[in-house]
Design a protein around this nucleic acid. Sequence first.
DNA 1: GCGATAACCATACGGCGGTACGGCAACCCG
DNA 2: CGGGTTGCCGTACCGCCGTATGGTTATCGC
Lengths: 193, 193
Amino acid sequence: MAAAVHRLIAHDGLDAATMSAVAREAGFSVGLVQHYFASKDELLLFAYERLTADLLARVAARTADGEAAGRSIRAIMLDCLCELLPLDPARRGEHRVSRAFQARAMDVPTAAEVAVATAGVLRGRVAQGIENGKECGETEAATDAELAAVELTALVDGLADLVYREPARAAAAGAVLADRLAAVLPGRCRHYD
Amino acid sequence: MAAAVHRLIAHDGLDAATMSAVAREAGFSVGLVQHYFASKDELLLFAYERLTADLLARVAARTADGEAAGRSIRAIMLDCLCELLPLDPARRGEHRVSRAFQARAMDVPTAAEVAVATAGVLRGRVAQGIENGKECGETEAATDAELAAVELTALVDGLADLVYREPARAAAAGAVLADRLAAVLPGRCRHYD
DNA sequence: GCGATAACCATACGGCGGTACGGCAACCCG
DNA sequence: CGGGTTGCCGTACCGCCGTATGGTTATCGC
């Protein structure tokens, strides 16, 4: 159901996600949609929450995989942050949906909460990773993890927009991201690698 | 006229910028609006172009002022980039409008062109400033100006979103920006200061 | 088994959006 | 002077959207 919303927005923008269009796309009737969601706002909010939850879960999975493979924090983090870049058609679509909801979040307080919460979780995880780096020697002890996390998350946010607008600059974006990550986590882990 | 569109979007979102609402806000009739703009798309596109032109002009003005005052490139650039952050109510409003149009740019090719062009000009100016820094000793000769410009513009983009979402983190955003700028332009100008 | 509750549907309704159209005043140019 | 172009207006039209509603089928507790 939420997937139908995502598909519609990804393909034709947020305005295309009308009740009837969603119902048609999902193969249900309009009445059914109304049965599960009291209003369109609820539907959209649910779809937004679902989107961010999926994204966060994917990041968590990549983290888990990386840890299981014994990779460095820097490598894992680069992996996770690149996941947020619209580098392939699927992620471009997701980016469209995400941005549409973020725009909506400027007018709808409930959506804004989701946006704040998601960004907070992401920033928190990045900060945690950097903090962990101090224990295993990847991060300089003097580094302010919180500030570095603010920088990195803001950077990927901006790079995502850039890559979407100008896909030709994807390589440059990746280079910038890797570079900054290397600056924040310059050391080698004393456990792995 | 475009100002009316901006006010409406800033206050109630892009959907509030209907033909009749714009006419009312501007003190004109619906017919007049139609007389000057063949369609709503045209009106919105004009308003978008106007917005970006204003913004670029303001940045240019700040640059000119800074140069006239003999300030360092780093100081001027910090000034310009902070101009892009939604630090006060006026700029918050502008940010809302800007983001609304950027979201629209994902569906409307003509708007996308404006977005790409604006971002390009901005990035170009930043790159130029960094390049200039090499001649006056502020920038390390090995610095890749283009790449650094990509980083800085993407960073302010992301920071702008962060500051809008969580105004409490404005100080952190400013610190990050100043820090990165200091890293790219570490030296002292051999002419001024 | 059976009433009630939930799942599900088709359709009707009120509202509003963008655009088209006909008309009125003013001004220009021959 | 006078017809036509331009600036400008009010309104009507059509379509679509979100929602409400009444009804039909299935599910399930007792």
